[in-house]
Nucleic acid binder design. Structure first.
Length: 222
DNA sequence: GCGACAG
DNA sequence: ATCTTGTCGC
């Protein structure tokens, strides 16, 4: 297994490949969601990638992979834990998505290389980080209406790491940041479009449900 | 030294 | 992440 300093060094090397602007052609037709589920009683984890039609939000394809957790949970090294099952699931897909929305951060990371960046660089795919809670950065009070945004800033460097985005009026916001090959503005627009009546993007909700299902199925066979 | 810390 | 259904409040 990778040691912690080795993982940090790898992040610092790979972060230089991140393209934080729109670098794709054509309309977004297929949006992917990715999530990993954990078993409380063992070290089994299940990753799921779901492909949705961007317009109808219909599920087009699902791929899952169950395995033993390859790396412990360490804030800032999250991707080394969730990447392996997600890559294994992604390799099974028959279609290639236009963009992937991750359950976790992209550039809003201590070394600017969260899970969304890592997956994006590894797959050479446009990716978006969409986390439920903050890893780092500060943000001002946010208007309560759906669509309201506020910058997430690293006050130590004054860098804007991403946007805090209210996807539903009166509901806790989500944290959107660039993963790879997409701008923050495009990423935010897509997250809002995929969250018309729910807090989290429909892609994340579907991925969560399918990862959970795959984990339960594996536990019952075993 | 202390607190914070994606899932 | 996981413990966890019904219940309280707008």
């Amino acid at each position: 297994m990778l040691t912690e300093p080795q993982a940090v060094a790898l992040q610092q090397q790979l972060r230089q490949r991140v393209v934080p602007e729109d670098a794709f052609v054509g309309p977004i037709r297929i949006v992917a969601g990715a999530d990993v589920e954990y078993d409380k009683h063992s070290d089994l984890i299940a990753g799921a990638i779901v492909l949705l039609d961007a317009d109808t939000k219909t599920v087009l394809e699902v791929a899952t992979h169950v395995m033993k957790a390859p790396f412990p949970y360490i804030p800032g090294l999250f991707s080394f834990r969730e990447m392996p099952p997600l890559l294994a699931a992604f390799r099974q897909l028959q279609h290639r998505p236009d963009v992937l929305i991750c359950d976790g951060h992209g550039l809003a990371h201590p070394r600017r290389f969260g899970l969304a960046c890592h997956l994006g660089v590894e797959l050479d795919l446009p990716t978006i980080g969409c986390g439920k809670t903050r890893l780092l950065g500060q943000y001002p009070d946010l208007a309560p209406e759906r669509g309201a945004t506020a910058p997430l800033t690293d006050e130590a460097t004054d860098e804007v790491l991403g946007l805090v985005v209210r996807t539903q009026t009166g509901i806790n916001p989500v944290f959107v940041s660039v993963g790879h090959r997409i701008s923050l503005a495009s990423a935010t627009a897509l997250v809002l479009a995929m969250s018309e009546a729910v807090r989290l993007p429909e892609t994340t909700r579907q991925a969560d449900a399918h990862a959970r299902q795959a984990l339960l199925a594996a536990l019952q066979q075993q």
